[in-house]
Amino acid sequence: MDHFRVENLSISFGGLKAVNNISFGVEKNSIFSIIGPNGSGKTTIYNMISGIYKPDSGRILCDGEELVGLSPDRIARKGVARTFQNIELFSNATVMDNLLLGRHIHMKTGVFSGAFLWGRGSRAAREEIRNREIVEKIIDFLDLQSVRNNYVASLPYGKRKLVELGRALALEPKILLLDEPSAGMNTEEKEDLNIWIKDIQADYRVTILLIEHDMNMIMGISDRILAMNQGEKIIEGTAKEVQSHPEVIRAYLGEEHGC
């Protein structure tokens, strides 16, 4: 049985079939990429996995547990973390607070124990210190020390992407959904990101789902690739198989019209 499975997933908005009967399985600790032209339903799949949309039909299974029907916060507790295409950070909070929010499900402090934070021995203080240590490791890993206490609103685009990645990592997910992590990055930053994603896979023992448009990155990094067009699956396979599939080429480059 696969670690993470999507079975016959479909959703339509009005008459538009945004995702139609998609199935795939992902092995533990592998990198699985989803590619396809704009509007082919990649992000919609993510939104269904993380519970923002409810699919019309189909199943999503993580270690055999059904995720369809759970609210987004319950799905997060099952170990699914994600980033967003258009960055959804908490811009009125510091980088540190954003990453600590990623620790939310691992912490317990409530209103009363939080209000009675008297001194370093209190329960709330001990929990804060422990989690700040964990977050500090992520800050170290993603090279964010220089902006640690800055407000997110003041950061450049590339850094924000990293903060969002860090926040997802802080959740200690089993499955990490990355939505175009390299968008808006320059070549150098993309190379760094490439290395980081491989490191995350190795160090954090996490299964990564990746939506990406940068073909060099996809082909080099992915264990398996799913190619989509207009909500339909074209092919699922290794980089080589996908690259040479005529439908994929047609979806990306268009058809040749004899004229």
Binding site: I52, R77, L117
Partner: peptide
């Protein structure tokens, strides 16, 4: 300064992201 207050700020800034992190 602790978990509950951070969650409040998270809800103000982006309730979708707040839900997705739990």
């Amino acid at each position: 300064k602790t978990r509950v207050g951070r969650s409040f700020v998270a809800i103000k800034d982006s309730d979708i992201a707040a839900e997705v992190i739990g």
